[in-house]
């Protein structure tokens, strides 16, 4: 493994059983990601972006081929190992923010740290810091139904970032946001990528997102059709 390489995908195939036969959503993908990348998988709807992200996030397993995410090979990925990997090292951001509506902003962001059994004082410090990153220090007591879409997505970013994960997987994070809010959260993530050296992998077909990416991987019908670094 090359120094700083955190994801290796080797000839990955993913098929789903449908009816009697099967549907191949990913068909022979090979990719590598290094630490600190700010990259995105782009492509038309149904091209397999979410499927790929789910496998990287150990929420799903390859049909053929192998992955190695943060030193853990897909071949030895038990549910327990997968849960631990996600808990400690991976943050997720979703198109629909998926905040827990009965909990306050503070509590939503605190949740991953509770799972990690971080002591209360440390937890509080980390949550407040994460909310400061996304500019929501004044909303800690609000509940999700009281927030705007942009604010909600920023809470979700804080929740993904609060444990300072090595890898953040963001699936269409701007799909429900207007242009202004999209730019705001993208700048936030760019800043965190820079400050914490967190690796970001997006799945998107939003041009606003694509404009921020430093590496663009195009997917079509489950195959990589191009993979290019963007000069800035």
């Amino acid at each position: 493994m090359k120094n700083g390489r955190i994801i290796t995908i080797d000839n990955l195939v993913k098929s789903f059983p449908i009816g009697g036969g099967e549907f191949t959503a990913l068909n022979g993908i090979s990719l590598q990601f290094d630490k600190g990348e700010f990259s995105g998988i782009v492509g038309p709807s149904g091209s397999g972006k979410t499927t790929l992200l789910n496998i990287l996030g150990s929420l799903d397993t390859p049909t053929k081929g192998q992955t190695n995410v943060l030193g853990t090979a897909s071949t030895r990925m038990s549910p327990k190992v997968a849960a631990t990997l996600r808990k400690k090292h991976i943050g997720f951001i979703f198109q629909t923010y998926n905040l827990m509506p009965v909990y306050t902003v503070f509590e939503n962001v605190e949740f991953p740290l509770l799972l990690l059994k971080i002591p209360s004082a440390e937890r509080k410090k980390a949550v407040l810091e994460a909310l400061e990153w996304v500019g929501l220090s004044d909303k800690i007591k609000s509940k999700p139904p009281q927030l705007s879409g942009g604010e909600s997505q920023r809470v979700a970013i804080a929740r993904a970032m609060v444990k300072k994960p090595d890898l953040v997987l963001a699936d269409e994070p701007t799909a429900n946001l207007d242009a202004e809010n999209s730019h705001h959260i993208l700048k936030t993530m760019e800043k965190l990528n820079y400050e914490l050296r967190t690796t970001f992998v997006f799945a998107t077909h939003d041009d606003k997102v694509i404009g921020y990416l430093r590496r663009i991987i195009s997917l079509e019908d489950g195959k990589v059709v191009s993979d290019a670094y963007v000069k800035k």
Partner: peptide, 14 residues
């Protein structure tokens, strides 16, 4: 379901 999926994604075991 949403909450369950989220908790799984955040790394809680089933």
């Amino acid at each position: 379901y949403g909450e369950m999926g989220l908790r799984i994604a955040i790394g809680e075991e089933k």
